[in-house]
Design a protein around this nucleic acid. Sequence first.
DNA 1: AGCGTGACGTTTG
DNA 2: ACAAACGCCACGC
Length: 121
Amino acid sequence: MTPVNPEQQAGNPIIATGFRQEVLATVAGIPAGRVLAYGEVARLSGHPGRARQVGRLLSTLPADTVLPWHRVLCADGRLAFPADSGAGQEQKLRLLAEGVQFRGQRVVAGHFWSAAGRRAT
DNA sequence: AGCGTGACGTTTG
DNA sequence: ACAAACGCCACGC
């Protein structure tokens, strides 16, 4: 028979393991109108300190992805792209369409979301 | 199997 | 406010 993955064989309840799946699941769970920093996404995914890898992963998403990638930004509230870049413009437009407000080049702090119980004020 | 790249974060000056 | 230095390490070649 075909060898079975040990994790599956053991009846592991974990749906999917691995950095990729964990991070994508977290991003998919960000509600509209809220944003998360790359570092927060990493932490909530169980990978504290790997903010950069989150960005690296998002950069590989296909153009037609259904993931709300635009809700992920830098810890200081600025977008990860230059404001004048195509991606930067699109991200800002998507956020504005969801009611996210900007103060200059930064997203207003109140829009940051925390799934850990604390909520934006 | 190794290496360069990079949608970040924190600390330090 | 700005810049530089580091740590982080998944992904694609």
